[in-house]
Design a protein around this nucleic acid. Structure first.
Length: 898
DNA sequence: TTTCCCCTGGTTTTT
DNA sequence: CCAGGGGAAA
């Protein structure tokens, strides 16, 4: 038994008693995977009994602990793979865990059927018992568009002004209620009355009823309905309680109330719950009982949570949602909680705004009495300077459990703080610096730019396009969220399931068939009158004399097409069927005719969709996958700089990280401050902390003095977080712009800037208190004062023109930007070209001499700007008159001949 | 029914 | 400033 892990998971030997001889004997031999763990990690892996909370700071080996723990459980024979419940938030995390466990234990990862996201596991359970919650096992999982369309109909039906009360808002509201585990009858009356003149709660109830009719569930239902299932059917619950011997939860700080309740139900011992009635302990949940009875009105406010011994500081619990937060873990003393292990980091809780309750993690030892808390504080990622800066910053938060990250590495370089006049200059500075790094051999895919808000990306992208610097935007509209993909999916759904009315509504008139609102309305009426799906109603109407000839023909063709496709469903391979559907429906043609910039990209996406179907056995399997897994990792192995939001960066790491836009109002985001006060501020601080801790070697923070907000310019103040960085770990670069009082205004604690005679000498946060919004001014006024850049490489007078002057930066962004189709830019690994010298926006010189393959007058296509014609050629720099985006100067590697 | 223009609002985003 | 949605004209 030299390598016991080559053995498949199942069948596992019967679970021996803890500490049994066999286990110990095996354990002694199998300690290989435990090697290389530090003592805390090892403790986290080996403490198998009872509740465990692992507080894992950034870069401390969280995933490793989780995966090793699973391997450990399996190898000790404590449980079979199918008896372990392991939940993550994202599919990506689930995939990664599967992968790593597989690497550690052998091939048989498929033997972990209960490793997945909360939602996918919820769906799995729900399908098994669908009848018990008034669904059929093949229920549809709604996407957001469907949801909103449905809500709009309900709002209209209730005769509520849809303008004042948009469907989207109600969707958000309902989502919020579901996140908090509230069924319609549990929504506090006051809150339920906010929407639509007191009708919010009724609409929610109507929506739920409608979902049942449609045999559909939305994302929230995957959790909430499972909870309801468990509450109303204790025998079912008991079955799962008995099955899951070990529960592991990743990113516990991100769990919302519904997820918490879900876990809590599963984490109870099965014994008591096998009885037919809900347990006493359940009473403290938001619902009075599991029997669907209304929550007692007196429950709208619960007492403040008992202070947790775990918690170092006072709770901030901000959002006034106390009523939704359940009280303690209900396990009576005789039934200790099961073996649940939650891993998380309260300092990385950045999703409060979408329902995550930091409180869940802060309260863990109270919820799970006798919990063992293990802190992982040894960071293997970042240098001491970076960690020092991050730790000191986050220490300003009060609502935290408290950890101190220690670096296991060298001191490295200090965190660099710099400033720019405006965001255009900031983008330029970043671009320049990256070129420099590139010249020194720094890989581009080890560089990331992390922004607070996505609008910040635009100028950076713009700059990179000009420089020919390859980049990729992470996040943004995901593949399956693109309109063309959803349309295609709707066609396929309807082929698969002719009763899918929401899919029908989506595509009746896409492409345009002359079937507008009027036609749809009469279809609805007929469908309702006869109690048939819309497609059937369409069939009836297509032969009815009452319908005008034109729409009648359109309906006839549509119905015939679906009949045809459905007949082909069982005879043709599903990929082929998909192609046929897309072509015969005229959908492909619609985009082919479309001359807009992103049409080509959309067609490409459709091809990609069909290609991705190959991985599935049949249409059914594919559709199930897509509704749950909304991301495709179309990993591009291009060496490119990553640009993303701070939120999207969680869990990632890079050698060098740029953090632009650290200004009051943007990094502590104004809205966060306004809406959530101190708790909001603390979440913003965690965001800043997440940003810094993404860096392994270099972190470069910057802020600007002037920012354009909604079109008009206003001066901005440096972020208060800058003042919270410890001096000894930070190097402040002198502002290049040199406008005393602005770029250098910040940093009362940094000598470097004092010489500039800042008028702001109070700490940044206090500065921010007074007179926010600043005053407006024209940066142009100062342009003459601008000294030459220290590098002397570039004199960019052009950028000093008032940015409002238009011309530059007025292009239309398209969704294609997340897949910039770089024609393998030559920048790859080659010595970076110098930045072009520009005067008044004119390109006068350029350092690459390579002649361009394009000539004046050529028709070209650009991924971002669309089609255009070459106006002028200057080496590899071309001036293009784009059809839509206007005149631009672009590097030729970004162009294709059209 | 479609198209065009006006109006509004404009962090973050998974499932 | 600028994108997306909704209402009014063609």
């Amino acid at each position: 038994m030299s390598d016991p892990f080559k053995r498949p998971f199942e069948p596992a030997p019967p679970a021996p008693a803890p500490g049994g001889i066999a286990a110990r004997a095996r354990g002694a031999q199998r300690a290989a995977y435990l090697e290389g763990l530090n003592p805390e990690q090892r403790e986290a892996v080996e403490t198998l009994d009872g509740p465990v909370l692992v507080l894992a700071g950034a870069g401390t080996g969280k995933t490793r602990v989780l995966t090793t723990r699973i391997a450990h459980i399996l190898s000790l024979g404590r449980a079979r793979a199918s008896e372990i419940l392991a939940v993550t938030f994202t599919n990506k995390a689930a995939r990664e865990m599967k992968h790593r466990i597989g690497a550690m234990v052998g091939e048989a990862v498929e033997g972990m059927p209960w490793l997945g996201t909360f939602h996918s596991i919820g769906a799995k359970i729900l399908r098994r018992h669908a009848e018990l919650v008034n669904l059929k096992p093949d229920f549809t999982i709604l996407d957001v568009d469907d949801q909103i369309r449905l809500l709009k109909q309900l709002i209209a039906a209730a005769d509520i002004d849809e303008k004042r009360w948009p469907g989207r808002l109600l969707a958000t509201q309902i989502d919020g209620w579901k996140n908090r585990g509230l069924t319609p009858d549990q929504v506090p009356a006051g809150e339920g009355a906010v929407f639509g003149n007191g009708r919010g709660r009724d609409l929610y109830a109507a929506y739920q009823a409608r979902l049942k009719t449609l045999n559909a569930a939305d994302f929230g239902d995957l959790l909430l309905e499972t909870i309801r299932l468990f509450r109303e059917h204790p025998a079912v619950l008991a079955q799962y309680q008995a099955r899951f011997k070990y529960i592991l939860v990743d990113e516990y700080q991100d769990t919302n109330v519904a997820q918490y309740l879900w876990l809590r139900l599963l984490a109870q011992r099965p014994s008591a719950a096998t009885s037919t009635s809900p347990r006493r302990g359940e009473v403290d949940a938001p619902s009075a009982s599991g029997e669907g009875g209304p929550a007692s009105p007196s429950q709208t406010l619960s007492p403040p949570h008992p202070t947790s011994a775990l918690r170092a500081n006072v709770d901030l619990s901000p959002r006034g949602r106390g009523e939704a937060v359940p009280a303690a873990m209900p396990n009576p003393p005789h039934a200790p909680p099961k073996n649940i292990c939650c891993v998380g980091d309260d300092d990385q809780s950045i999703y409060g705004w979408r329902g995550a309750e930091v409180d869940n993690i802060l309260r863990f030892d109270h919820d799970f009495p006798g919990a063992k808390v293990i802190r992982l504080e040894r960071n293997y990622r970042s240098t001491a300077h970076i960690l020092g800066a991050a730790s000191h910053l986050i220490a300003h938060n009060e609502g935290r459990l408290g950890k101190t990250l220690r670096s296991e590495g060298e001191a490295g370089e200090k965190v660099v703080v710099s400033s720019s006049w405006d965001s255009e200059e900031e983008a330029r500075a970043i671009g320049e610096e990256i070129e420099q790094l590139q010249r020194r051999g720094h890989r581009l895919d080890e560089i990331a730019i992390l922004v607070r808000a996505s609008f910040q990306m635009r100028e950076i992208e713009d700059r990179f396009v000009t420089l020919g610097l390859p980049y990729r935007v992470i996040g943004g509209p995901r593949f399956y969220e693109r309109a063309e993909i959803r349309d295609a999916m709707a066609y396929l759904r309807l082929v698969n399931q002719p009763a899918d009315d929401l899919a029908f509504e989506r595509i009746v008139n896409v492409p345009k068939r002359g079937l507008g609102d009027a036609a749809l309305q009469s279809l609805h009426d007929l469908a309702r009158a006869r109690g048939v799906p819309l497609l059937e109603a369409a069939r009836a109407m297509s032969t009815s004399e009452a319908v005008k000839p034109k729409p009648r023909a359109a309906l006839r063709d549509l119905v015939a097409a679906f009949d045809r496709w459905r007949a082909q469903r069982d005879t043709l391979p599903h990929t082929e069927l998909a192609e046929i559907v897309l072509d015969e429906s005229g959908y492909t043609e619609m985009w082919q005719k479309d001359r807009s910039a992103d049409a080509a990209g959309r067609l490409e996406n459709l091809k990609e969709l069909v290609r991705s179907m190959e991985d599935f056995e049949n249409l059914q399997g594919f559709l199930e996958h897509v509704s749950l897994v909304m991301d495709t990792d179309r990993g591009e192995d291009l060496d490119a700089v990553s640009i993303m939001t701070l939120h999207a960066a969680k869990g990632l790491e890079f050698d060098t990280v740029f953090l632009p836009g650290w200004e009051e109002g943007l990094l502590p985001h104004q809205r966060s401050l306004d809406e959530n006060g101190r708790a909001g501020l603390e979440e913003e601080r965690r965001l800043a902390h997440v940003g810094i801790t993404r860096a392994r070697k270099n972190a470069r923070i910057s802020f600007v003095s002037n920012r354009r907000i909604h079109g008009s310019w206003s001066s901005s103040l440096p972020s208060r977080f800058l003042d919270e960085l410890p001096e000894q770990h930070v190097e402040v670069l002198e502002a290049k712009g040199g406008f005393a009082g602005y770029g250098n205004a910040y940093g009362s604690r940094f000598d470097t800037t004092a010489a500039f005679g800042s008028s702001y000498t109070t700490p940044g946060w206090r500065r921010a208190q007074k007179n926010r919004g600043g005053f407006e001014e024209d940066p142009h006024e100062y342009s003459q004062v601008e000294p030459e850049e220290p590098t002397g490489r570039m004199r960019d007078i052009g950028s000093r023109r008032p940015p409002a002057g238009g011309g530059n930066g007025t292009f239309k962004t398209s969704t294609a930007r997340s897949t910039p189709g770089f024609a393998a830019p030559s920048a790859n690994g080659t010595p970076a070209r110098r930045a072009p010298v520009t005067i008044e926006g004119e390109l006068v010189a350029r350092s690459t001499g390579a002649p361009s393959a394009f000539a004046t007058g050529d028709r070209v296509f650009h991924q971002k700007f669309g089609y255009g014609r070459v106006r002028a050629v200057d080496g590899n720099k071309l001036t293009i008159q784009f059809d839509k985006a206007g005149e631009k100067k672009v590097v030729d590697s970004f162009l294709n001949k059209a």
